[in-house]
Amino acid sequence: MNTVNNQKNAGFSGYFPTWCPGCGNFGIWAALKTAFTNLSFTPENFAVIFGIGCSGNMNDFLWADSFHALHGRAIPNAVGVKIANHKLPVVAIVGDGDCYGEGGNHLMHAARGNHDITVIVHDNRVYGLTTGQVAPTALKGFKAKSTPSGIIEVPLNPIALAITQGATFVAQGFSGDINHLVGLIEKGIKHKGFSLVNVFQPCVTFNSENSYAWYREKIYKLGEDYDSSDINNALAKSMEAETKIPLGVIYETDRSTYTDSLPQITQKSLLESLAPNLEIIAKLMDEFV
């Protein structure tokens, strides 16, 4: 493996990716590095939690303090990191199978809790790493190795799900439009609270249906006039037919974050207050006498 040294993203580039040539993950990778650079991050002043999948394999391609999790469990790891050190920005990089299938429960609850983490979902509508089975976002009827006669279920709607479960920032991007995606990732990270960025990511090897061309035909960018603070607007957008796919910040609102609501860490983070208070312990013992 050889290391790439892209001047613009110096510091974040790890090994050269082993993704298939043309894979949408390249675009997300580039957008992430640019966003981190624009945010003046260094590889050591934030934390990245990777899921398991082709998406999660970015762990070796992106230089940053990171935790490569179990399949489906990156979100709870990220929540734990944030609670331990809420001054550290925390980003989770996950697959659609990872986040909407195996770990679906965690997504709902992290949204409800408004945990201040940013979740970037590589939505390729398939399981890439396990060689092409349907993901929860696969379109109805999609034929894949595990559903040779076409998938019976309708696709999960990540945007509607996140909005209705209490996410305070929900955006949708396309790996074929890196510049636009950079903006969404930056906004997501800057947003205080739970942010989800669902990124359409063509899998050129196992999903010939939802290709770059397929997306380009359907996507459109939300205009200046779109009011992302209105939940009804946002829900209506999230329910638009698959023939027209909106990109941009679909919903954004303000609600106090999980760690903001914890009086024990208003002054210092848990990490900054590790020593036990022996005086209090003596008092606690007295309570049992």
Binding site: A47, I49, F67, A69, L70, R73, P76, N77, A78, V79, G80, V81, K82, I83, A84, N85, L88, L270, L271, L274
Partner: peptide, 13 residues
């Protein structure tokens, strides 16, 4: 998994 995240971040969990 939350506890492992917190522990990785340096806090006894």
């Amino acid at each position: 998994n939350m506890a492992l995240g917190a522990s990785w971040a340096g806090v006894r969990s």
